[in-house]
Amino acid sequence: MAEAKAEFEVEFVGACPLWRGFEDQLAVALGAAAALEQKAGAVAVLLGDDERIAALNKSFRGKDGPTNVLSFPGPRVDPGFLGDIALAAETIAEEANSQGKSFEHHAAHLAVHGFLHLLGYDHDEPDKAEVMEARERAILASIGIADPYA
């Protein structure tokens, strides 16, 4: 008998026009992350601009200015909802440009990074960072994206 495949859904929200056309690549990256982490459920992804993400960063982390990605784990009362990921278009574009990466690949990397935070991965200590980065590399390699840390 064939094994049932775990269901995984991505819902995109936000109206930032800089994200148009990138939703499919982000969905592929997040689907690969869910598959390799063997997670079913759903995530919501805010495709925001720097202004929107800066407001979230201030509200939830007390930090001024935008950041590339924010993650908000889902409530324990709904284990099917893994959480929210918020991405900042201009910050990601600037980082991709300065690092010589495509916007599409850098955004996919940060979506995967945010997803792993939803699952409890962190990079606040060197050993934890090594584990998280190894998972990011494996997930991205599975969809043909080069090592983002090379």
Rank of each mutant, 00 (worst) to 15 (best):
E7K: 14
F8K: 04
E9H: 13
V10R: 05
E11V: 14
F12T: 05
F12M: 07
V13T: 14
G14F: 05
G14Q: 03
A15V: 11
L18K: 13
W19M: 04
W19D: 02
W19I: 06
W19S: 07
R20S: 10
G21Q: 04
G21R: 02
E23W: 03
D24A: 13
Q25L: 11
Q25W: 06
L26F: 03
A27T: 02
V28R: 15
A29S: 09
A29H: 08
L30Q: 06
L30I: 08
A32R: 12
A32T: 04
A34E: 05
A34N: 11
L36P: 08
L36N: 01
E37C: 15
Q38A: 14
Q38Y: 00
K39T: 10
K39E: 13
A40R: 11
G41W: 08
G41E: 05
A42E: 10
A42C: 03
A42W: 01
V43T: 04
A44G: 03
L46H: 14
L46M: 12
L46Y: 11
G48I: 06
D49L: 00
D50K: 04
R52L: 10
R52S: 13
I53Y: 02
I53E: 04
I53T: 04
A54R: 05
N57V: 02
N57T: 08
K58W: 09
K58L: 15
F60N: 11
F60C: 09
R61L: 13
G62D: 08
G62Y: 08
G62A: 09
K63Q: 15
D64V: 07
D64K: 12
D64N: 13
G65P: 09
G65H: 02
P66D: 05
T67Q: 09
N68Y: 03
N68E: 07
V69C: 09
L70F: 02
S71W: 06
P73Q: 10
G74Y: 11
R76I: 08
V77T: 14
V77Q: 11
V77I: 12
D78T: 12
P79G: 01
G80E: 12
F81N: 11
F81H: 12
F81P: 06
L82Y: 09
L82P: 09
G83M: 06
G83C: 02
G83S: 06
D84G: 00
I85N: 04
A86T: 06
A88V: 06
A89Q: 06
I92N: 06
A93T: 01
E94I: 03
E95N: 09
N97D: 13
S98W: 01
Q99W: 07
Q99N: 09
G100Y: 02
K101M: 10
K101Y: 04
S102D: 03
F103Q: 08
F103H: 07
E104C: 12
H105W: 01
H106I: 00
H106F: 12
A107K: 09
L110G: 01
L110W: 01
A111I: 04
V112C: 10
V112K: 10
H113C: 02
G114F: 07
F115S: 04
L116K: 08
H117E: 10
L119W: 06
G120S: 07
G120Q: 11
G120H: 07
E125R: 15
D127T: 13
K128V: 00
A129K: 15
E130R: 15
M132Q: 15
A134H: 09
R135M: 12
R135G: 00
E136L: 04
R137Q: 10
R137Y: 05
A138D: 14
A138Y: 00
L140H: 05
